[in-house]
Design a protein around this nucleic acid. Structure first.
Lengths: 317, 317
DNA sequence: GTCTTGCATAAGAAAAACTCACCGGTTCGC
DNA sequence: GCGAACCGGTGAGTTTTTCTTATGCAAGAC
């Protein structure tokens, strides 16, 4: 993952200016002059080729483009600030830090983690749901060949959805995943949702994470696999930023979502969701437990790995 | 929200160096010299007062502190990159983009959103769960009543947990929140969890988001409010990065969590969770629907606001 | 009109980032 | 062992970026 980022200071200045809706105030907050803010904002606008503020003689207003990006920008700085804070306080006080994709965490890990904690009450756990544990890059051709590696870093253990190619790191395969269509049982009962063609009459729920896994529009790919791409429109429907949200939406009868098997097994077993079709799309990759060799033999890590592999083995497809 | 951040370029260099576990490789990626990387890393270490790499003659190793903070750091840069990308592409093309905290989205918005979509099938929605929509509020900004921005390629509303002071933005109060203790019904039945003191015998589930809302250690504050701070240890127990995860953990009987009322009302009604104590801690703030004045009167936004306020009114405390 | 406020801009000053050249320790091949 | 190849550390000097000062310009307030 190589970041292509604009000058970061300019971003920070822009964020402050946007928050205050005033260059002067922003300058004050940052302990620089108003002129400096003006310069930075201008350079950022030139770099991006996009107007960020609308100057109306006196005062400034955000443009649509700038406004739309602000939440993420704040998210970014928040995360950076948190990371720095963590370093300052020597954060890793817990015995075991687990970083994993949110869906995996909520749907698979959590229901089982209680068991782990019961068996190992002394191991203090820290669970971080990180949206970017999907190896988007791992689906690139270069990496598919197994030549390139990414992510030579990490803290504690991480769970990745990828190919398991992490040179220098111990990686254990948990289980493979496939993509299935899920919907609320009532939706299936009430309307006819027996053949993939019937999807044309339902709302398709999209989510960004799934598109990442599928390396494109996930619905499009699934419909292709099912051979009904020409009869169902994959473009429309609400978008969600995470699989957790789209699954929640599906169970609320908002529409039909894509999910990863076996993560949704529990939902299906409990009747919260059903998988009406047999068509399953095998995306590349599987969930892997990855950790740097240097910490692989720590007691807490070793215990967790052993436990996790056992759990994965007993419920894997 | 004023960010206290180290020199950002140093952070970026550090991230690259950590990823490659090599100053030389990092230098190569960043198109600078190895000496520059060395300098930047050193300055960051001095700024933080924390050793980040352990130099072993040839090659470098991450220290614990550095390793622990990396996932967040990467999350941060990912978010910044995404924000920049979004600005470049002038955002999505949906009719209505809703950015909200993850718990709010999953526990409150989603169950109701189905109704909205049913009533307004033509409005295409994009829901983004953003981890840090909690804020103290931008309090001292100049209010601008400027020229209208007539471009309509993207319209975003946000839901914040804050004070409702957003100059230049239209903000409507949805409902206030209070902090309550929740646990699995079985946990309450099997063990005695009748008085706050009993918490001493249970695992306390911590989450970062709740600490943010409480402006400190949320459990500590709750225990203070309940008057049992001296009898229950607020420090230990597993940590989660989001309220969604800690609630999930609680319902899996891993321990006892803090939650926001009324977000968990549905869980309590359905019996997934119970709130064993009457002590409720009122944290500052409430959920607000916030949107820039310039887009407040667009049909999609106006429709959504009307609907949302109606829903909030009928279920607020 | 005149005053005030807030952003833009140019030119020079200050600060930060980078390079170069060289050092020293470690590893690896012979 | 011994020397070569690597890799990071360091200090001095240079380049680039960022900031300030000073001033200009437009819009709203009185």
């Amino acid at each position: 993952m190589i970041y292509r980022l604009p000058p970061l200071n300019a971003l920070r200045v822009f964020e402050a200016a946007a928050r205050h809706l005033s260059f002067k105030e922003a300058a004050n907050e940052l302990s620089i002059t108003q002129a400096a803010v003006s310069h930075q904002v201008k350079s950022l606008e030139e770099y991006l080729g996009v107007e960020l503020f609308r100057r109306s003689g006196r005062g400034v207003q955000l443009t649509e483009a700038a406004r739309a990006a602000l939440p993420r920008l704040r998210d970014g700085f928040d995360a950076l600030a948190a990371a720095v804070e963590q370093i300052r306080e020597r954060g890793g006080e817990t015995d075991l830090a687990i970083t994993a994709p949110p869906v995996f965490t909520a749907r698979w890990l959590m229901p089982r983690l209680a068991d782990f904690s019961r068996r190992n009450p002394k191991i203090e756990v820290r669970v971080v749901g990180s949206s970017k544990m999907v190896d988007a890059g791992a689906l690139d051709t270069a990496v598919m060949a197994g030549t390139l590696d990414l992510r030579d870093d990490m803290s504690g253990v991480e769970i990745h959805l990828g190919l398991g190619e992490y040179p220098g790191y111990r990686s254990d395969r948990l289980f493979g995943v496939s993509m299935v269509v899920v919907a609320s049982p009532e939706l299936v009962k009430n309307n006819d949702l027996q053949k993939p063609e019937d999807l044309a009459h339902h709302m398709l729920l999209h989510d960004d994470a799934m598109d990442l896994v599928a390396h494109g529009n996930a619905w499009q790919k699934w419909l292709d696999a099912a051979g009904v791409a020409d009869r169902v429109d994959a473009a429309h429907g609400p978008h969600f930023s995470s699989n957790i949200l789209s699954l929640e939406a599906a169970s609320q009868k908002l529409g039909v979502a894509l999910a990863l098997r076996p993560l949704v097994s529990d939902d299906i077993a409990s009747g919260r969701l059903v998988a009406p079709f047999t068509t399953e799309m095998k995306p590349v990759g599987a969930y892997y437990l990855v950790c740097p060799e240097v910490i692989a033999d720590r007691p807490a890590v070793a215990t967790f790995r052993k436990w996790l592999l056992e759990k994965a083995g007993s419920s894997s497809p």
